[in-house]
């Protein structure tokens, strides 16, 4: 009985997820990233049951991350995020290691990260994440200025708290335009599947993502 009810419901949300990334070199191998990201829900519901257009602003995140190059293609980073969601403020600490590999015709990046989320009256949530990204030029063998490219991120998140454990998978295909090495725009779909373990409800999120990367 329990088995047949497991994952009986799948809910979904769809909306927009714009972001702005500002990156700057501080000195030597040290760099700083400032990111703003916001979510607006437009449509949501439960598959096979009720669905409704329900447009509302959900949240805004502001984060600052310091990173240091620890090799030609590797960097370690740590930072802090503040989230304004409804009437609450959420805090998050972030740590990450990134490795970028260059191949003829594409670039591959591996990102290993952990973060800890602090929400009032809720046990701390820790996430352990791995993301693989591939970036392919649509013209020539590398992404030159004024050229389009395709980028696909695939991320796995193991989520742990005193209350529960969870697993989330994200797939984010985007089309990018490289105005210059200092200025890129990416747009695509950010699909997130959560509730894969220890949950009776799976959630599917579909965000129209638009990201702007600026190097100062």
């Amino acid at each position: 009985m329990a088995g047949s009810n497991l994952y009986a419901q799948s809910s979904f949300e769809a909306g927009t997820l714009p972001s702005v990334n500002l990156n700057t070199r501080i000195s030597g191998p040290w760099r700083f990233n400032f990111k703003w990201e916001s979510r607006q829900v437009l449509y949501r519901g439960i598959f096979g049951e009720n669905k409704q257009w329900d447009a509302f602003y959900e949240r805004s995140d502001f984060s600052g991350v310091f990173s240091r190059k620890v090799g030609l293609n590797n960097s370690i980073a740590a930072g802090y995020l503040i989230r304004f969601v409804e009437d609450r403020i959420v805090h998050r600490t972030i740590q990450q290691f990134t490795l970028v590999q260059y191949f003829t015709g594409f670039r591959l990046a591996h990102r290993f990260s952990t973060d800890q989320t602090f929400i009032p009256d809720i046990p701390t949530i820790s996430r352990y994440r791995y993301r693989i990204s591939v970036e392919n030029p649509l013209n020539g063998q590398e992404v030159d200025p004024k050229e389009f490219y395709l980028k696909v991120n695939n991320e796995y998140l193991f989520i742990h708290s005193k209350r529960n454990n969870g697993l989330e998978i994200r797939i984010v295909p985007v089309l990018g335009y490289n105005f210059s090495d200092r200025n890129k725009l990416e747009a695509g779909i950010d699909y997130r599947l959560a509730g894969l373990i220890n949950s009776e409800i799976r959630t599917h999120d579909y965000w129209l993502t638009i990201g702007w990367y600026v190097k100062l």
């Binding site: 990046a109 090495d181 890129k184 990367y213 190097k215």
Partner: peptide, 10 residues
């Protein structure tokens, strides 16, 4: 000069 990796890191 290696191209910027910002869009692969964040």
């Amino acid at each position: 000069d290696l191209r910027s990796t910002d869009n692969l890191e964040y």
